[in-house]
Design a protein around this nucleic acid. Structure first.
Length: 939
RNA sequence: GCGGGUAUGGUGAAAUUGGUAGACACGCCAGAUUUAGGAUCUGGUGCCGCGAGGCGUGGGGGUUCGAGUCCCUUUACCCGCACCA
């Protein structure tokens, strides 16, 4: 018998039908409740989709379809994060414009996505590299440029409110979310009127006397995106700077190239102004604890105090940040980072040579070495002494590279008794370890517990660390050498990239002052996609007339980072064709937050943080009405590949089967998984695979086969273990693949890809087909369905509805299988059952459901069918068997009326005392009847 | 080191509030049917044991009439952060 279930023609037919009828187009409709279901949009790489990509897309598609059946107006769009490095690198190699490469890749992606039957509204597609889109990315940049963070109102405000304040009262009463020591970076040559004591404060009269240029220079230190010299992660191999989240273990996340610290003039985003709100906002959103925790760690809030230590024989002060001000009486030395600006000033003549040698050595160490040699203790005494603010005792000042220049103030007060690193340092250099805790042994290690009672600590004696904390800070504030302070690990995000394939800045320069452009700046053509010979970004190759707008002395030639476009794309879907605004407020008010966002957790410190930042900013400025973008997020696990290996005998072209590999010195090589079936190598195919294997020899196993080794690894082109969805769709159909990917296991879990079970899922769809059809002929009865069939159906409605509500995609497939098995056993072909079953099936197997729906005689789309209602009465049973247990063992079954409540069953059992005695020999003393189905009798 | 997570048959996994652990599927075994179809159907399949029976959710302890589920403790693996003062 030929295939009854002809998935190829069915799927093709309905794809065309949906496309022609605009089945998935959606518009705002106030009469319906909205639901916004979103996938993280992909970067269209040249490799195309592999089976891991659709996992999340299928899950969100199912959810979107389900919500549509529930009567919601569902926004479910898709687009492309189409600026990025691979297209640019391909351009460098081949000279092909990245736009061309991107367009080709995009076409491939679209074809692959189309085959999977997603219900995207493609009329809303966005592409970040499209000028129509990035015009608004540039616009948002401009809004950030024209804004500052007012900590008094705790929101971003237009820069005009800041200049108004300056005009009225100068810096007095200005409480901005910028670096409190911004004035240190001000170019003093530009401000000859400032005395050497200038510390960031000026009056209204000062402000009014500033030239326009001076005003702009000051304002630059307040803007939410600003141009400044800063220490950046420079990656020479990529020829660009990277943000902290793009650097992992001292090397670039993409490509694994070394990264060094470099001082460069760059655009930055003042995300630090939002640190506290990014932290507190986490409590309002439904994300996993793990990803919230990653963001919390990344923001790294720590509460403590700033303390100033005066220096002996020097006018300067050392400022430190500490989370343990209560242990201040345990300070026995200070440590500065080798890069600390005070080091050169305070070092005594006799220590000068040693200190400089140490500084040089520290500088030579790469970031990576510094991290990996954590255990090595090194340091150098400067010869200088600080003064303990409470006791007046001299405290020696050291430098050591365990203190980081970039965190806090780059200086610490060392308390060996309370901090393990300080303790180790003290032991190593034989420095004193003052005992400041009552009854704590400090011979082996430091005691970091805040619950310990303090001793030898003057007015703090007898208090625990918890209690002493506040008292101590109060005392320091009173005496003027300390302040309560909250420190964040989060740094401002570098926003410039020295690349071609990104958004140009809407910025030009006049006398080296950046000026905004209020119009689209498109990417100019260039003759090569490489930096210029002077190390300028590729855009510097463009001639003045190549720019669509050219103003001032020169244009900004950096481009924006990859995360710029992806930080707001979810808003553009709401109003994708608007040429007047990035998104009309009425549209964003209707669609609101993303109700369900599905994507990988690898974006925790990148995209997911930046999106929250921009959303909060746009909210502050009144452009949208919500300040968290993604209400609920689910992170799908990665699908891993199963790589296959062959074993080549060293220095030969002879390959030995897996079983015998240990008899030789072999080299393990990846082999393309398409040449391997059930771990057996297709030898002829292998020879044809690569020219160097054409005359390979093989040592086979006892069955005359070549067995490959295998391992679960990340799917990647270089490991030849990529499984594309295309061939599976070809063989089994999109509906089978959709069900199978969900059936694999919980969405959140990482799992190796394995096609072993796909037949089972395919068989289920065929079995389902046979419920409706005899061969290709419809067989549906209009008679009343049996009680059993109604029970099977309603059990399934209940289960599937609950599962979809709680996001358990995998168990739904099992529930459908059980239902089909039961209906098959019952010989059920009744319309009253099959019709609702088709709707239950529709989210998972949309093509098949549509076909069956039309075969049932409907002219409309199954997508518009209402989700079947669950009716409890069909699940009620007349009689229930209550197993009765004695000491955990089932002794007899008690048949009772299903309507009885547990109390009544208990009475019934007591009335059956004779039976119980017969089984046990004794009468039951205590009977517990639970609403489940079990009765325990304790004897 | 800190934080988060996972652990159940040969395999992927179910078990939603503590209630007959292993649903559903793969694989495997036996049989039927058929002979070129990645076929279909029937039965079996946690482990030990011929059996009655015993043992079973990483290990140990606890709460409970009853624990995969709750509490304590411990081990292994995965992910993230990491001289952050």
């Amino acid at each position: 018998m030929a295939h009854d279930y002809d998935f190829r023609s069915i799927e093709q037919k309905w794809r065309k039908h949906w496309d022609a009828n605009g089945t998935y187009a959606v518009t705002e409709d106030d009469s319906k409740e909205k639901c916004y279901v979103l996938d993280m949009f992909p970067y269209p790489s040249g490799a195309g989709l592999h089976v891991g990509h659709p996992l999340g897309y299928i899950a969100s598609d199912i959810y979107a379809r389900y919500q549509r059946h529930r009567g919601k107006n569902v926004l479910h769009p898709m687009g492309y994060d189409s600026f990025g490095l691979p297209a640019e690198q391909y351009a460098i190699q081949t000279g092909q414009h990245p736009a061309v490469t991107t367009a080709n890749n995009l076409k491939r992606y679209r074809e692959q996505l189309d085959k999977l039957g997603f219900c995207y509204d493609w009329s809303r597609e966005v592409r970040t590299s499209d000028p129509v889109y990035y015009r608004w990315t540039q616009w948002i940049f401009a809004q950030l440029f024209d804004a500052w963070y007012n900590q008094d109102s705790d929101r971003a405000e237009h820069i005009d409110t800041l200049t108004a304040k300056f005009n009225e009262n100068g810096t007095y009463n200005v409480n901005a979310g910028n670096d409190p020591e911004w004035w240190k970076d001000l170019d003093r040559a530009e401000f000859p009127q400032f005395s050497e004591h200038f510390a960031g404060e000026f009056t209204a009269v000062d402000w009014q006397s500033f030239t326009e240029r001076q005003r702009q220079l000051v304002l630059m230190h307040y803007r939410l995106t600003y141009l400044a010299d800063s220490w950046v992660n420079w990656c020479p191999a990529l020829g660009t700077v990277l943000a902290n989240d793009e650097v992992k273990d001292g090397v670039s996340e993409r490509g694994g190239h070394p990264v060094e610290q470099k001082r460069m003039r760059q655009w930055s985003m003042r995300i630090t102004a939002y640190a506290e709100r990014l932290l507190s906002g986490l409590d309002t959103i439904d994300w996993t604890d793990s990803i919230k925790e990653v963001q919390r760690n990344w923001i790294g809030r720590s509460q403590g105090a700033s303390v100033w230590f005066e220096l002996k024989d020097h006018s300067g002060k050392i400022e430190v940040f500490t989370t343990r001000p209560d242990t201040i009486f345990g300070v026995s030395f200070m440590v500065l980072a080798p890069e600390h600006p005070l080091v050169a000033e305070i070092t005594t003549a006799d220590q000068k040579a040693a200190v400089e040698a140490y500084q040089t050595a520290a500088k030579a160490k790469s970031e990576r070495d510094r991290q990996s040699n954590v255990k090595d203790i090194s340091g150098q005494f400067t010869g200088a002494y600080a003064v303990h603010p409470f006791t007046g005792e001299p405290v020696p000042v050291w430098i050591a590279d365990y203190v980081l220049a970039g965190y806090g103030t780059g200086a610490v007060m060392a308390v060996p008794a309370g901090d393990q690193r300080d303790f180790d340092f003290a032991k190593h250099f034989d420095l004193p370890i003052p005992a400041i805790f009552e009854g704590v042994d400090l011979s082996e290690e430091a005691h970091a517990d805040k619950g310990a009672v303090l001793a030898n600590s003057d007015f703090l004696n007898g208090k625990t660390g918890y209690d002493a904390m506040g008292v101590c800070i109060d005392a320091m504030e009173e005496q003027g050498f300390g302040l309560r302070k909250i420190n964040y690990r989060l740094r401002d995000a570098v926003f410039s990239r020295q690349r071609y394939w990104g958004e140009p800045f809407p910025v030009y320069y006049k006398d080296e002052l950046p000026q905004l452009l209020d119009e689209l700046v498109t990417l100019p053509p260039v003759d090569a996609y490489l930096p210029t010979e002077d190390g300028e970004p590729p855009l510097a190759r463009a001639k003045n007339e190549d720019w669509n707008v050219f103003k001032g002395d020169r244009m900004e030639t950096n481009t924006m980072p990859g995360w710029a476009g992806s930080s707001w794309y979810f808003l553009r879907y709401m109003d994708p064709h608007n040429t007047k605004a990035f998104c009309d407020r009425s549209k964003s008010d209707y669609w609101g937050q993303v109700d369900l966002y599905i994507g990988g957790s690898e974006h925790a410190t990148g995209h997911l943080l930046y999106s929250r930042f921009w959303t909060k900013f746009l909210y502050d400025m009144g452009y949208i009405g919500f300040d968290e973008p993604f209400k609920k997020m689910i992170n799908q696990g990665m699908i891993l590949g199963r790589s296959s290996f062959v074993y080549r005998i060293k220095d030969s072209n002879r390959f030995v089967t897996f079983e015998k590999r240990k008899e030789y010195q072999t080299q393990r090589l990846h082999v393309d998984i398409s040449l391997v079936e059930n771990d057996t190598l297709n030898v002829e195919g292998f020879k044809a695979w690569r020219p160097e294997y054409a005359d390979a020899e093989f040592e086979l196993n006892d069955e005359g086969k070549y067995t490959c080794g295998h391992e679960v690894e990340k799917m990647s082109k270089s490991k030849y273990n990529v499984q594309t969805p295309d061939e599976l769709v070809e063989r089994f159909g999109a509906d089978t693949l959709r069900c199978y990917e969900m059936f694999l296991g919980p969405l959140e879990q990482a799992k190796p890809w394995d096609t072993q079970g796909i037949n089972g899922v395919h068989n289920f769809l065929r079995k389902l087909w046979r419920l409706f059809n005899e061969g290709t002929e419809v067989r549906v009865s209009n008679a009343d369905p049996s009680k059993d069939s109604l029970k099977s159906l309603h059990k399934t409605i209940k289960k599937i509805t609950e599962d979809l509500e709680r996001g358990s995609w995998n168990t739904v497939v099992s529930a459908l299988m059980i239902c089909v098995n039961e209906l098959t056993d019952q010989g059920c072909h009744h319309r009253g059952i099959l019709e609702p079953l088709t709707v239950l099936l529709a989210p998972y197997a949309p093509h098949l459901a549509e076909e069956l729906w039309s075969r049932l005689g409907h002219s409309g789309s199954v997508n518009d069918a209402t989700w079947p209602a669950f009716d409890e009465k069909h699940l009620k049973e007349d009689e229930v068997n209550y197993p009765v247990q004695f000491n955990g063992k089932v002794k007899f079954q008690l048949k009772v009326d299903a309507s009885l409540n547990p109390k009544q069953v208990e009475e019934l059992l007591l009335a059956n005392e004779n039976t119980a005695q017969f089984l046990d020999g004794k009468a039951p003393r205590k009977i517990i009847v639970v609403p489940g189905r079990i009765i325990n009798v304790v004897v």
